[in-house]
């Protein structure tokens, strides 16, 4: 229990710090690398929540494929230098205040409802394992799975159409 608590807080600090680093970094490549660090820590949280399959999908799809796509586009456009954050003071401070209000509201509601969140029992050893997730996916969620394939096909065609050069 205590070692898990220590692990959670260290990783939570890393996750929040990398998110803040992404927000404030002047270089878009650094922002992407901070985001990769954030995704990796969230993958460890998934492991702690006994979601082994989702954790590895997070590493390969999010931290791998999606962020490589981001880095490709940043370097393709030569848009590393993002310049200023916002042009005027109020455009920077108003979102900060609104974000703080949102965070305080959310944490207040979570603390108020702390009793309503169910206590967690020990999970079975196969909870979240690839075999269990696959069975659930193909037994109860077969139609959404197939629709997802159509969605990915449409996205692929759309990306090719949008990104091809105008002269062709």
């Amino acid at each position: 229990m205590t070692s898990e608590l220590i692990l959670f807080f260290i990783l939570a600090i890393v996750a929040v710090a990398s998110a803040v680093g992404m927000l404030l970094s002047r270089n878009a490549v650094y922002a992407a690398l901070y985001l990769i660090l954030n995704f990796a820590t969230v993958a460890v949280f998934y492991l702690m929540l006994s979601a082994a399959f989702i954790s590895l999908v997070q590493v390969t799809v999010y931290a791998g494929a999606i962020m490589v796509l981001f880095l490709f586009v940043i370097m393709l456009l030569g848009a590393e230098h993002t310049g200023r954050l916002s042009e005027s003071g109020w455009m920077f401070w108003t979102p900060i205040v609104l974000g703080a209000v949102l965070a305080v509201e959310a944490l207040y509601i979570i603390l108020r409802q702390w009793k309503a969140i169910p206590a967690t029992q020990a999970a079975g050893s196969d909870f979240g394992a690839p075999a269990a997730v696959g069975l659930e996916l193909f037994q109860n969620y077969l139609l959404p799975f197939e629709v997802t394939s159509v969605l990915l096909l449409v996205a692929m065609i759309g990306a090719i159409l949008l990104a091809r050069s105008k002269k062709a």
């Binding site: 929040v16 998110a19 803040v20 992404m22 927000l23 878009a28 848009a79 993002t82 310049g83 200023r84 954050l85 916002s86 042009e87 455009m91 920077f92 979102p95 900060i96 609104l98 974000g99 949102l102 965070a103 959310a106």
Partner: peptide, 12 residues
């Protein structure tokens, strides 16, 4: 919240 903040304060 940090993500929402990023959408609001960044211009890139």
């Amino acid at each position: 919240t940090l993500g929402a903040l990023g959408v609001l304060i960044r211009r890139n």
